[in-house]
Structure formats: C-alpha cells, structure tokens
Design a protein around this nucleic acid. Structure first.
Lengths: 111, 111
DNA sequence: CTTGACACCTAGAACAGCTAGGCATATATG
DNA sequence: CATATATGCCTAGCTGTTCTAGGTGTCAAG
C-alpha cells in the first residue's frame, strides 16, 4: 500500500479526461490509452476508474456521448466536450495550477 | 460540490504534514495553521482531516508523538519525524514531482 | 479454436477527507 | 460574572474516488 502505483490519480482523473476529450472526439478505451501514452506510462487508468468517471462527467453535463464507428471498424462510444465541460476544464486547470503552486510553496520551505 | 474548496488536499495531506513536521517538532493544531500560512491560505486543513491523518502517520511509524508544553503554556502533542518518516517524505516528494510532471505533459498537449 | 486485443460495463471494498459534533482550558469582552 | 473566542485534542458517520475483480461480446491471428 505504500509504494505501489495505485491511487496515483488523486482526483486529477476528471481533469485529465476532460483535457484529452478536448483534443477531439474520442472513445473511452482510447482515452485511457492516450492518457497513458502522453504521460509516458505514468498514469495507467484502470477501466474500473475510467468508465465510472465517464458516466460521472456525462451526468454532470460536461461530456456528451454518441455511438460511432471506431477506426477498428467496430462501434464505440465517442465523447466530446460540452460548453459546460470546457468551462469546467478551464476551472480545473486553474485550480490545479493554484494547488501545485501551494504545494510547491510548502515543499520549498526551509527551516 | 463543484467549485467549493473541499477536497482540495487530494492525497497531498500526508506529504504536507510530513514536510511541516520535518521543519521541527510541532503540535497538531500548529501544523494546520502552518500549512495554511505557508500556502497563503490556499490549504485549510480541517481538524477532521488533520487528526485522523496524524494518527495514520503515527501508526505507520512515520511520526512520533510526545506530550509537551506548548508556547501557550498548555499541554500539546508534539510530533517529530522518524527515520522511516524521513524516507517516506522523500519518496512522496519524488512521487509528487513525477505526478505533476505527468499532469503537465497532458495539460500542455495541443491537438 | 483459442488467445489476445479491443470495447463496453458493474458491484463491492478500501480509503481519504469532510461535516458536525464533543471535551477542556485560557483569555478577552461585554 | 457571563460568554464568546482561541487554543488544543478527539471521534462518528457520510460521501466520493479509485481500485480489484469480475462480466459481456467481437474480431483477428496463430
């Protein structure tokens, strides 16, 4: 429980999903792959975290879903940002900046 | 639940506490004030988050407690880092750096 | 024909952080 | 004197996120 990779997302998952979806319509499975790839394998979004998060974001009106054909030729659920979702992303990015600044302040404090 | 200040700590609380305690023995109540002050009021550690966290850290052997007289003249529980706690702090700081780097990678991705 | 990648999903557990209480003492204020 | 405020400790119980661990089904490759 101490040094494993679990609980790495620490509440950033929603923001990361919103950001990746903001890059263009994309389906769930691909979102997790993209997050993993862009973060150079740091984040590994489990499906059990991913799908509930997507439904959460959709329920809050930040994402919209539509079934379409994926590049694989099979049906997949494509998500895109709503206007509210874009605002939410902005807010979360701003808040992340403030949060990491605040953390940095504390970590840099010397006695 | 969207824009309020709750759930700001996002798993960083343990690290922040360890860091503040690393600056020198300090009691619980003062830890939360110090975090708030250094972070320029960004973090407001509720007592219901603080004390369970302190007990958690103590149980894991990262902190040691001792009752002493506070500057106010009253008894308070002073915490200091153990050797394990120092290692843990290092690990968490390193991990935080990796995490925020990974987030930055994703947030900076343009289409 | 069976394995692995793709693509979706859920239930239940674990855990962190919050709200909202509680206790006790000291000091300041009306 | 009463009472509010600050100090200083604590817990129970709720909520929300993430994980583990399962499940469904299709398609391509070997």
């Amino acid at each position: 429980m101490a040094e494993d990779k679990s609980e790495m997302l620490k509440g950033t998952l929603d923001m990361l999903i919103l950001k990746v979806v903001a890059l263009g319509p994309i389906h769930g499975y691909a979102i997790s792959q993209r997050i993993q790839q862009i973060s150079k394998e740091f984040f590994q979004v489990q499906q059990g975290s991913l799908y509930p998060a997507l439904h959460r974001l959709e329920n809050r009106g930040w994402l919209e879903a539509e079934w379409r054909e994926a590049s694989s030729g099979r049906e997949a659920k494509f998500y895109k940002l709503t206007k509210k979702g874009r605002k939410q992303l902005e807010a979360e990015v701003l808040n992340w900046a403030r949060l990491s600044d605040a953390v940095a302040l504390i970590l840099r404090t010397a006695e």
